[in-house]
Amino acid sequence: MSQLFHEAIIISILASTLRIMTPLLFSSMGELVIQRSGIWNMGVEGTMLTGAFAAYLVATLSGSLWLAVIAAVLAGILMGAIIAFMTAVLRVDHFIAGLGLNLLAGGFTLYWFQSYIRGRAQPTFSGFEDVDIPLLSDIPFIGPILFSQRALTYLALLAVPAIWFLLYRSRHGLELRCLGENPKALDVKGLSVTARQFAAVTFGSAMTGLGGGFLMLGFSDRFLADFTAGRGWIVVVALIAGNWKPKGVFIAVAAFALLEALATHLQVLGAKVPHQLLLSLPYIASIGLLMGLRLRPGQPARLGVPYTRE
């Protein structure tokens, strides 16, 4: 246990935290854009799963990891288009649409996967390696944590200020926030609510798909059923815990990832605590956080309410 405070272990815990954060950051920033536009998308898990599967398919067929990344993004866009069509155009209940999409994604990816590998050994691929940033990765302590990560991890960290800028410093961001707070204001100005929500959901889902794609290309070498293992739900929790603000969501994701990395290392170091308890630590913290956040001042006023002109 005392080993926990050894430098090598602390470096490992923090580097692990960044790796765990990466897929969650992509997906949560995407989901933030979607929810700020008023659509309560429950289909994060299914979108991540489809992104992961598309990445697997293209990585094994083409051998190119970057083509696989593009495939994950396109899969996210496709899933986003379905969600957007159901919620923004058909005005179906957001929860039902999202949950339906998760079921569809679970069944569809498994069916396609089984058809793809039938009668042969499962094809595998070699995923992304860590990229050492010259000079910076040699800095003691900080170097191996921050500057020796997979390329997409840097992109995920950049996504946070980028989404903040989009939401708070651009005209699109202003319109987007308005969609979630008072869509009628846009409508009376002759600006299409449906088109803007459609764009927000497809853009956000592209990022969610990328999160699933990273989970595949950064951690695995093959696909299996229900590959995302509930991470989409963590994203939904992070949005609420982060009070629908980029900084808050970033902190929520980082806290979750740090707890998971800590739990991992504590178990490996033989902590005298049941490992099941350690494993559930991030989830217990999430539930505790939600219970503590009964007031949700940041929640968009029209979140989850289909917009209709009266």
């Binding site: 490992s12 989970l215 951690f219 093959r222 998971e260 990395a261 991992t264 178990q267 490996v268």
Partner: peptide
């Protein structure tokens, strides 16, 4: 795989 990878990396770190 993500969890499996992190646990393995943690063991290697120790």
């Amino acid at each position: 795989p993500a969890k499996a990878g992190e646990y393995t990396s943690a063991q290697i770190a120790t």
